[in-house]
């Protein structure tokens, strides 16, 4: 079997990279090689994983500096003998080795508005058409790997923004609720303020790293920004509001 030079972060914030030569097979993924390392020379290596199929979002890390799921990085894409650097996600506090504390995301999950449906029809049922919920179905593909949060420079390079910015994953969540055909409460523009949408400068890194292929920037963040523009910066709507105020005599 060929060998790969695996350079893995070991320890906490005061830790260091340690290089290991590990055997691998062409058909394997990075996570397989990490498991081989864990079962041999680094039995105390901490790594979070679960499904190994790109669906649970547990094995998020940074491979050669790029945020990615270790289970989705095929060894065939690396050249034999190449040094592969595996780091924990930089944006979150490090616990040990490749495991980070992602609880900041759970706090944000509590902040964003929950679904608040309109009143039911007279027969006691809610009705919606497939054509109306297609947009939201894209957002439901999110596996909460938090790679989009990890790569977002707003918090990656400026942790002080964590109090004012919920991050791309939760913009997806807000969009999912805000664009829902049965949603009532969040239809008000005020429902979109306070989450740091205006911190995003559209560099699209969240979309680039999303393993679920969600077009986070084009389909969630920009449409939400445009809804805020409707409220504050659209000259035609300004005019409409002035005319309607004039007509009502207020």
């Amino acid at each position: 079997m060929p060998l790969v030079d695996l350079k893995v972060w070991r320890g906490d914030d005061n830790g260091e990279y340690i290089s290991y030569l590990v055997e691998y097979d062409e058909g394997e993924v990075i996570l397989d090689v990490v498991h081989r390392l864990q079962s041999t020379d680094a039995q105390d290596l901490a790594v979070r994983w679960n499904c190994k199929a790109g669906k649970c979002g547990s094995c998020s890390a940074e491979v050669n500096g790029k945020p990615s799921l270790m289970c989705m990085q095929r060894m065939v894409n690396f050249t034999p003998g190449e040094e592969i650097i595996i780091s924990p996600m930089k944006t979150f506090p490090l616990i040990k080795d490749l495991v980070t504390d992602v609880s900041w995301n759970y706090e944000n999950a509590r902040k964003v508005p929950a679904f608040s449906p309109k009143k039911v029809d007279t027969d006691g049922k809610h009705r919606m058409q497939q054509v109306d919920i297609e947009r939201g179905q894209e957002f439901h593909q999110c596996i909460e790997c938090y790679l989009c949060q990890d790569v977002c420079h707003v918090i990656r390079d400026h942790p002080e923004n964590k109090d004012n910015f919920v991050g791309p994953r939760f913009f997806v969540q807000i969009a999912s609720v805000n664009m829902h055909p049965l949603e009532s409460a969040s239809q008000k523009p005020s429902a979109l303020y306070g989450f740091g949408l205006d911190y995003c400068n559209i560099t699209k890194c969240c979309t680039e790293v999303c393993p679920a292929g969600i077009k986070i920037t084009d389909n969630a963040i920009i449409p939400l920004k445009e809804r805020l523009v409707d409220d504050k910066y659209d000259p035609v709507r300004w005019l409409g509001r002035i005319i309607s105020k004039g007509k009502s005599g207020k």
Binding site: D13, G15, E16, I18, Y20, L37, D41, G65
Partner: peptide, 20 residues
Amino acid sequence: MVSQNTQTESLFNRYAKTLR
């Protein structure tokens, strides 16, 4: 099956401008 290279590197690498 596995051999270990004891080469270690500094903390700087984790906070380098990029590892890409």
